[in-house]
Amino acid sequence: MNDGHVNLLKLCVGAEKVADLEAWQKRQRAQRTAQGLEPVHIHVTRMWPKRQDEILNGGSLYWVFKGLVLARQEIARLDEVVGSDGIRRCGIVLVPEIIRTQPMPRRPFQGWRYFAPEDVPEDLDTADGGEPELPAGLATALSDMGVR
């Protein structure tokens, strides 16, 4: 089932729901535009993925909110970002569209993890405008029961 790509999995710290992430990234893109920079969201992380070629072959960053994978974003590219401390970091440049996924439980972890294509949750059907976001507790309960 793997078509030569791999995904990343990351906790969405500071956001309780997908709408929080959407609003935050929209503000970040507006700030970058005001500074004359490319209007993209760049998520900076300490570690550079060793499997970058696989990530750039169609990979997405899957976001975990309060113990549930709820959304993903396609990864456009990886940029080198050098901090004021002179340390080289990885800037994960994300496509602006945030795609909601079926809720999938995930335990807490630090940093990011590789996420194999065969293990990822399915995208939600957004042809009808998408489903309203459920409270995390309800989404977890439904997922545990196999309903969602």
Rank of each mutant, 00 (worst) to 15 (best):
27 R>K: 15
61 L>K: 00
94 L>G: 01
3 D>Y: 12
78 L>Y: 06
8 L>F: 04
10 K>T: 08
112 W>S: 13
130 G>E: 11
129 G>F: 02
144 D>N: 09
36 G>K: 03
34 A>D: 13
136 A>V: 15
3 D>P: 06
16 E>W: 03
107 R>K: 12
102 Q>I: 14
17 K>P: 01
60 S>E: 10
15 A>E: 15
50 K>Q: 13
18 V>R: 04
114 Y>V: 07
93 V>S: 08
32 R>Q: 13
23 A>M: 12
38 E>I: 07
101 T>N: 01
106 R>G: 00
14 G>C: 13
8 L>K: 04
113 R>W: 01
90 C>Y: 02
2 N>D: 15
117 P>I: 10
125 D>A: 07
75 I>D: 00
78 L>N: 02
7 N>D: 14
65 F>Q: 01
58 G>V: 06
145 M>S: 14
82 V>K: 06
43 H>Y: 05
99 I>P: 01
52 Q>S: 14
52 Q>Y: 10
131 E>L: 15
56 L>V: 10
70 L>G: 00
2 N>G: 13
146 G>I: 10
26 K>M: 13
147 V>P: 08
41 H>V: 11
16 E>K: 09
49 P>Q: 06
83 G>S: 15
110 Q>W: 09
80 E>N: 03
20 D>Q: 11
33 T>E: 14
21 L>T: 07
109 F>M: 08
89 R>Y: 02
62 Y>M: 09
108 P>Y: 09
135 P>Q: 04
135 P>V: 08
32 R>A: 13
109 F>G: 05
135 P>R: 11
96 P>I: 06
137 G>R: 05
14 G>T: 15
43 H>M: 10
44 V>Q: 08
96 P>R: 05
106 R>V: 15
121 P>S: 04
111 G>V: 07
43 H>D: 12
84 S>W: 03
147 V>N: 11
31 Q>S: 13
26 K>V: 03
126 T>R: 05
23 A>F: 10
1 M>I: 15
117 P>V: 12
9 L>F: 07
73 Q>N: 11
33 T>Y: 03
55 I>S: 07
146 G>L: 08
83 G>Y: 10
89 R>A: 05
116 A>S: 12
72 R>I: 14
104 M>I: 07
67 G>A: 04
